[in-house]
Design a protein around this nucleic acid. Structure first.
Lengths: 208, 208
DNA sequence: ATATAATGTTACAGACCGGTAACACCCAGT
DNA sequence: ACTGGGTGTTACCGGTCTGTAACATTATAT
């Protein structure tokens, strides 16, 4: 009795899609492969034909998450082509949506918390993803003409990570509610001192 | 064959102490009550005489964590009596220690991630603790003469939460490595603009 | 139409888990 | 010395979990 997905996609895709949702809702240790397979409208045997183990499925899901998040950067570029500062502000808004609109935060960070074993195969996927994401954000800050680009990137990064994890403790009305205004103020503070040879790009400045 | 704790403390304390350590190392869903009891130098039966269920034990452990963290505020006050600004800086340093020195972040936040069920008995302990801590930090900022105290408190809060969760994804060399410098800059930025009717509090005025 | 691959079904193995029962023990307080 | 509460020991229950075996069924490609 599948509750999820019409038979449109092939089993493998349905399983990943369903597993991601159930992992997110119940935690990776809080849901079994049997429940995932059933919810995906298939069965455990087929699941194990596509994914050698539950850990393999977890890794596949995290790769799926990574691919989905990589798309965000493309969307930002197409939304504000050639305007890295606007992309930076948009990045903040997208992050804030995830932090306040959803009560389960970041799948990658959650996986890092839940999969405590240092040698779990998912860990290097997580680390790779987070590092790449951080580097991309730093590049965006650099392209936006921020002087201390790395420092701004790390600041915004910590704010976003904090907002997403805080939402899971105290909900959306907690400190994460002010993520955007805090982040905007931070961008403004870093953009204030621009390199002398470049014009200061005027853009929304929100008071702290 | 107990590996932990000499028989000094009574079983209940040993169990909580050991459970906290193992929960932290393996995650709450990654360790069983049997292993906890054995590591604590006792057995499952005694564990269940003191804690009616594993969830009860989890709650007891989180209360223990809360009590331990409440002590931090007392220590800050005794270390810098009547100097809330110094206490604020010290708070940041203490938080940074936890964020970079330890690879498992905040027990409370981790529990919130791991115990996904919305009605888990531990959730209200977590929320209560996080809210109280946030309020205390806001009060500290207020006492330090910060104008937008709540906003600074939330900013620092997000930074710390972010650093602690980030450390579990990319380790101590990630963005969390700059927590202190970022936080210091933020405190400085907020302290710069002082209330006009009030003199710049070089010696911060303490209000009850 | 037929060969071939993918999927479904059922049953099961083996391990672990949370939780309990029954009984033996030990040690403090009187 | 005795009594009683806390503790240790062992065995067990029922459930759930990951993972597999064997076989039936369906879809696909040629």
């Amino acid at each position: 009795m599948e509750t999820d997905d019409a038979g449109r996609l092939r089993p493998r895709e349905r399983i990943i899609k369903t597993a991601r949702e159930l992992f997110r809702r119940h935690g990776m240790r809080g849901i079994g492969v049997d429940a995932i397979a059933e919810q995906a409208g298939t069965n455990k045997m087929t699941l194990y034909r596509h994914f050698g183990s539950k850990d393999d499925l977890i890794v596949a899901c995290l790769r799926d998450v990574a691919a989905e998040n990589d798309q965000i950067w493309i969307d930002l570029e197409t939304a504000y082509p050639g305007d890295p500062l606007a992309q930076l502000h948009a990045w903040l808004r997208v992050g804030a949506e995830c932090a306040v609109g959803d009560s389960r935060g970041c799948d990658m960070a959650n996986a890092a918390v839940e999969l405590a074993e240092a040698d779990h195969p998912a860990r290097h996927v997580i680390e790779e993803f987070k590092t790449a994401h951080r580097n991309r954000l730093a590049k965006l800050c650099r392209d936006a003409g921020i002087v201390k680009a790395d420092l701004l990137a790390d600041s915004l990064w910590l704010l976003l990570e904090g907002a997403r994890v805080s939402g899971q403790s105290v909900g959306a009305t907690g400190p994460g509610a002010h993520l955007i205004s805090i982040g905007e103020a931070m961008i403004a503070a870093f953009a204030r001192r621009t390199p002398p040879e470049r014009k200061a790009p005027k853009r929304a400045a929100v008071s702290a």
